[in-house]
């Protein structure tokens, strides 16, 4: 399942389609602490986070994530879309709380 398909399955709005948007999601990480994300060794991961900052996208790029879904329907700094475009990182926003988003993503991946 690609990050775009996961986003659609949990009713998240895709704001930026990045270069890996058609790659299959192989691992999901939920975290708001970027050091925590940097510890993950998996490839092609999808990041679920409630941290609305440019750092999220920079971290995602560092670990080669296929995309970022911002949960909680957070108002985000306008710079985030620009940074996502610059880094060619897929960015989606979802109104669910992170816990509910985890459960929904898990269900979507299991159905696929």
């Amino acid at each position: 399942m690609t990050v775009i398909e996961v986003a659609e399955a949990i009713k998240a709005d895709v704001l930026v389609k990045g270069e890996s948007c058609h790659k299959a999601v192989r691992h999901v990480v939920a975290s708001d602490l970027m050091s925590d994300v940097l510890l993950v060794d998996e490839e092609d991961l999808l990041l679920l986070t409630s941290l609305a900052s440019d750092q999220v996208l920079r971290t995602a790029q560092i670990v080669g994530a296929v995309g970022v879904i911002l949960v909680n329907g957070k108002p985000m700094p306008s710079s985030m879309v620009n940074v996502a475009n610059d880094l060619r990182m897929t960015l989606a926003i979802c109104p669910l709380a992170k816990y509910d988003a985890c459960v929904a993503v898990h269900a979507a991946l299991n159905r696929a």
Binding site: V28, V29, A30, S31, L48, Y99, C102, H106
Partner: peptide, 15 residues
């Protein structure tokens, strides 16, 4: 477990 796995586990049990 990590946050994603733990959340999914609680989700499954509560459901």
């Amino acid at each position: 477990q990590d946050q994603f796995a733990a959340s999914c586990k609680i989700g499954a049990v509560l459901e």
